[in-house]
Design a protein around this nucleic acid. Structure first.
Length: 451
RNA sequence: GGCCCUAUCGUCUAUCGGUUAGGACAUAUCCUUCUCAAGGAUAGAAGCGGAGUUCGACUCUCCGUAGGGUCACCA
């Protein structure tokens, strides 16, 4: 290796015993960032030595989530496929006299009567953590710990150390629950003659009550966030800034910027509470930048069948309401509930009116309201068909509305067009609906008032 | 319990001995406005406690306290 250009190799090593959650994403992201920043290699290693608990579906979930987020790996391994490597080291360790086959008195069901133990030299191990400084442990109390059930079944601590060595891992970035495990891994490392990698331990991500984040606190699988319509940029941005900061007040940060600015030294030491509101805020931010075409697909996918059909036959209207829908949600997942609550119905279907809702609060006279609606209909029908758009509609109606009282003109107009208390403004609505429908609805509102 | 780690607004965080302790989310109020959303503005809101070191501590040291992690033939 020439001077300091030693190639950086990092890894993310999940065990497929659960889905990829927010905390793992951050670990993976930081390792990935560090490798990319240093033009190094990022390895994805599935730690499936526990055959009982490892499941293929979890492995798929992890792979799926990472690729969705754009965290790409350069090499891929499964520990279950590397048996001979561990066996070789195990045999060497025994030959060297630093490990031995131990006769056991099985205490629990399933335990072996013979197991491979590591001969613990029992000394104090001090290592440097790039995020926290020096940490030391006395390893004597670990005793001669078990590193494999037999030559074919290595245990976690052993497999990790062997793999990190064999794969040339230079930087280990992982959760701080592994801090206490580090000394014993260093012991094994020294026994197999592996160089010590650089460590950086990440603080935990906590639930709002500061307890460990779990499923019931919203520690959803990343794939579930995807289904809820969260954007990868938002998740990445959110997770990056939880436990690390770029050294300034920047809140919006892209993957490229992260790669440029990432440093191990700026990793936070204390645990961080998962703040869903901030994720939502970020998602909303990225939603506004999202392509309208793709947004349309996401929205449509969440429409109930009947609405989907209407959206298809009224494609022009649907296209126009996409930005409006986006404006009112923080993630696409909200569309389903909104659609089911009838929030979008009136764009496609003439609404039914409640007579009293057509009256502005300060003006309860039906006759007056009728006159105003008639005037609006007239003003609108005078707009040239080709010029019929939000701005033109506004300028046609605005002066009159200002003169006659905006609320008493605009409220009945908007309610006539939407049939709802809350909706976009009447000009946007008229624009979406088109001249013909706009006038038809106003007339039908007038009829309701006349009854 | 032993060992290890951690501790700034409600939350995420800035500060690497000297600041009116800064920003963001959330909250409140105001503006915009026919409603909703968005947008803009403003406000309130923090150094766990106690000793020390120092001319001067959020920052360094120690002792408490609190929280977390880890102590498997799981990872």
């Amino acid at each position: 290796m020439s001077q300091d250009t030693k190639n950086v190799v990092t890894r993310f090593a999940p065990s497929p015993t659960g889905v990829l959650h927010i905390g793992s994403v951050r670990t993976a992201l930081y390792s990935w960032l560090y490798a990319r920043q240093n033009k190094g290699k990022f390895i994805l290693r599935i730690e499936d030595t526990d055959k009982e608990r490892s499941k293929k579906e979890y492995e798929e979930n992890i792979l799926d989530g990472l690729s969705w987020l754009g965290i790409t790996h350069d090499e891929f391994y499964r520990q279950s496929e590397r048996g001979d490597v561990y066996k070789r080291h195990l045999e060497k360790l025994i030959a060297d006299g630093v490990a031995y086959v131990s006769k056991e008195e099985p205490a629990l069901e399933g335990q072996r009567s013979t197991v491979i133990r590591f001969k613990n030299p029992g000394r104090t191990v001090t290592f440097r953590d790039e995020a926290r400084g020096d940490i030391s442990f006395d390893t004597t109390e670990l005793g001669d710990f078990v590193i494999a059930k037999d030559f074919e079944s290595p245990l976690y601590h052993f497999a990790v150390v062997v793999d990190d060595f064999e794969m040339g891992v230079t930087h280990i970035i992982r959760g701080d629950d592994a801090i206490s495990n580090t000394p014993r891994q260093i012991l094994i490392q020294e026994a197999i003659g592996a160089p010590r990698p650089i460590y950086a331990h990440l603080p935990m991500i906590l639930a709002p009550d500061k307890s460990k984040l779990s499923k019931r606190h919203g520690a959803l699988a990343v794939t579930e966030y995807r289904e809820e319509g969260y954007l990868p940029e938002a998740i990445l941005n959110f997770v990056a800034l939880m436990g690390w900061n770029p050294g300034n007040d920047q809140e919006i940060i892209s993957l490229d910027e992260m790669i440029k600015l990432f440093t191990l030294e700026k990793i936070q030491k204390g645990g961080a509470v998962f703040n869903i509101d901030k994720l939502k805020w970020l998602n909303k931010h990225y939603l506004k930048l999202f392509s309208l075409e793709k947004a349309g697909e996401e929205i449509l996918a969440r429409f109930p069948e009947t609405l989907k059909i209407k959206a298809h036959s009224e494609a022009k209207i649907f296209k126009k309401i996409v930005p409006i829908i986006i404006d009112h949600i923080t993630s696409f997942g909200e569309v389903r509930a909104l659609a089911e609550a009838g929030e979008y119905e009136y764009f496609f279907e003439d609404p039914a009116y409640l007579k009293e809702k057509l009256l502005w609060k300060d003006e309860q006279d039906s006759e007056v309201a009728i006159q105003k609606l008639k005037k609006i209909a007239l003003l609108i029908s005078n707009i040239d068909d080709v010029l019929f758009a939000s701005e033109a509609i506004k300028s046609a109606v605005w002066d009159y509305a200002t003169e006659a009282g905006r609320g008493s003109v605009l409220w009945p107009m908007r309610y006539a067009l939407s049939g709802r208390d809350k909706s976009p403004d009447p000009f946007t609505l008229a624009d979406i609906l088109g001249k013909e429908t706009t006038i038809r609805r106003i007339n039908s509102a007038i009829k309701t008032l006349e009854e």
